[in-house]
């Protein structure tokens, strides 16, 4: 059942992105930035946590989950650290993705040549 939910949620997010891309002059860069901001907003009132519970991996794969994890990490230790938690915890949960993207991009760009 969670596979069907994952399919529906991830598909709907991509469909919304495609509709925006086809009908406006925004570039893919604009759309991904917009979706990150939406995801980071949906972390408020733990809306996105409920979506993750419902759709599982389908909610973690789209770029909205990146914004959600940024917000979630920034707010995780707010009780102990106060306002400094926003500075210290921002990349706690997303660092695995960013580090992986940097390492793989660097290594592969050393190995392979650009295709024209």
């Amino acid at each position: 059942m969670i596979y069907l939910n994952a399919f529906i949620f991830a598909g709907l997010i991509c469909l919304i992105g495609q509709i925006i891309l086809d009908n406006t002059k925004l570039t893919p860069g604009h759309i991904t930035s917009l979706f990150v901001v939406i995801g980071s907003f949906l972390d408020n009132f733990s809306i996105y946590d409920k979506v993750v519970k419902w759709a599982g991996g389908g909610a973690l794969v789209p770029i909205t989950s990146f914004g959600h994890l940024l917000s979630h990490g920034a707010f995780a230790n707010i009780k102990d650290d106060g306002i400094f938690s926003l500075f210290m915890g921002m990349f706690d949960l997303t660092s695995s993705g960013i580090v992986a993207a940097i390492i793989f991009s660097f290594v592969f760009s050393l190995i392979f040549k650009a295709k024209d």
Partner: peptide
């Protein structure tokens, strides 16, 4: 064809979601 584009995006995106859940 905007309708086709949307449909393809929906199917591929949904498939990515399934792959994500499967890997988890």
């Amino acid at each position: 064809n905007r309708l086709l584009n949307g449909l393809v995006a929906f199917l591929v995106g949904g498939f990515m979601g399934i792959i994500g859940q499967f890997l988890i």
